[in-house]
Design a protein around this nucleic acid. Structure first.
Lengths: 248, 248
DNA sequence: CGCGTTTTTGCGTGTTTTTGCAATAAAATA
DNA sequence: TATTTTATTGCAAAAACACGCAAAAACGCG
């Protein structure tokens, strides 16, 4: 293998996973540690990555580290970790869009082998970083606000899918009113998504609890899992515990 | 064996495997290392490949390790500016993916009112920033390498579209061989894209000129506009000027 | 044809690049 | 602190490379 090819390989790994371990590269590329170290040093000289003890980091990673632009990022990561537990090898999963789902995707285990349908381009791009995940992007009109595809075509395609699990973010959830939304199109979309999955998980930061908006998506009983960043025993969730749904 | 034959052989190997080792060529062609090295140097002078220690690499093999640092960004912006001139209010445009297209999208005028179909999630997200552009994302299997949707479903959907203009990036273009590609799926995809647009523009940085890969997408005559970062009168384009296509 | 010129090719020689190893230093971990 | 893991440095061997040279072949032209 040529040096340039090795460099390209390393850069691909870095851009894919934002980080790379020297020891992993040694195995993957089947060369000595010294060679990898020299490679990394040369890439540093070309200003393409950061070198740290044990491996290297992507440059864009550092800039996206102060990515505090994502509102309540810590909470969303906590939710993501819980949601990951629902995913098993071989599953067919349907996801919506939103920053919470995005954080969830970033937390999936590397080796996971599964099929993901999604209406969110950004989620698709993130999912594509996993080698063993098949990604199907559902196409249609693209919403400027919610950054997902919507409209009749999307709903038609959804009707042809049978997923094991549907994961979606939420605008509002209420113990009596269930899942609600403000926009007609998004409302229709969520109904269609619910309809094609055996079970549904709702990812919901605590501040969206106990809110009801104009349009009803589904009653609370239609939801299988409610996933928040709060402890399962937290009192804010007491009124949801009475209902027939699993709280994570 | 004549020198020209050797050169052709080397280029075939390169386009087939994206790389070639000096030592392999020595064996295959049964000549001395020096001859191979001279050959490679001459091919470099003709701008047909990259020479590296140990062999040579294809020019089209510019692995997508550009996340933050888009390769040849200036050139791509120059191309984008030219491509923008083709877009008029009310048009229906179909675009592929790739960094060149992405730069083009960023350069569109704010007020533009048009309809864009695209197979690239990233392009869709970028297009969504324009208020008066309707964005339709064509869904299907999502390719981890090229970051676009592909496969039967995409092609079916494309067949239902009638676009005024199709804009695509390119892996390789050659005055005689036309547009070519390495992967079957992408090849099929590009054919389908061409078929549904009245006119086609190819965005092509100059280093992709005069390269022919394994699979033919279309002859050069099927292209309406060739858009490079070079001046229209540049000599590298002379062999394309003889053909029936507009050069921007 | 003859003769000078150019092109092509391989060889020898010295240089540079690449790579792994060993010894030592530094950092992380327990 | 002790131990393990990771880095650094210098060194040496192998591989790849560049350059000049010369023989052979191809070419041009009177």
């Amino acid at each position: 293998m040529l040096k340039k090819e090795r460099h390209d390989f390393i850069m691909r790994q870095i851009n894919l996973h934002n980080r790379v371990l020297t020891s992993d590269l040694v195995q993957l590329l089947n060369v000595s540690e010294d060679t990898i170290r020299r490679d990394l040093q040369e890439l540093v000289d070309e200003n393409l990555l950061y070198k740290v003890h044990g491996g290297a980091l992507s440059k864009s990673y550092h800039s996206s580290f102060d990515d505090s632009t994502v509102y309540a990022r810590d909470s969303k990561i906590a939710i993501g970790k819980k949601a990951v537990q629902l995913i098993k090898d071989g599953m067919v999963v349907l996801t919506g869009g939103g920053t919470t789902i995005l954080e969830f995707v970033k937390l999936l285990p590397q080796g996971l082998s599964a099929t993901f349908f999604t209406i969110s381009p950004l989620v698709a791009v993130e999912l594509a970083k996993y080698n063993n995940i098949e990604v199907i992007l559902i196409g249609g009109l693209f919403s400027k606000n919610s950054q997902v595809t919507y409209g009749g075509q999307v709903i038609t395609q959804l009707s042809e899918i049978k997923a094991d699990l549907c994961l979606m973010g939420t605008s509002a959830i209420h113990p009596e009113e269930g899942l609600t939304d403000t926009y007609w199109e998004i409302n229709q979309l969520k109904k269609a998504m619910l309809a094609c999955a055996k079970r549904t998980g709702v990812l919901c930061i605590s501040e969206k609890l106990d809110i009801a908006l104009r349009l009803r998506v589904c009653p609370i009983e239609s939801i299988s899992y409610l996933i928040t960043e709060l402890d399962v025993e937290h009192e804010s969730l007491s009124r949801y515990r009475e209902k027939e749904l699993n709280i994570l």
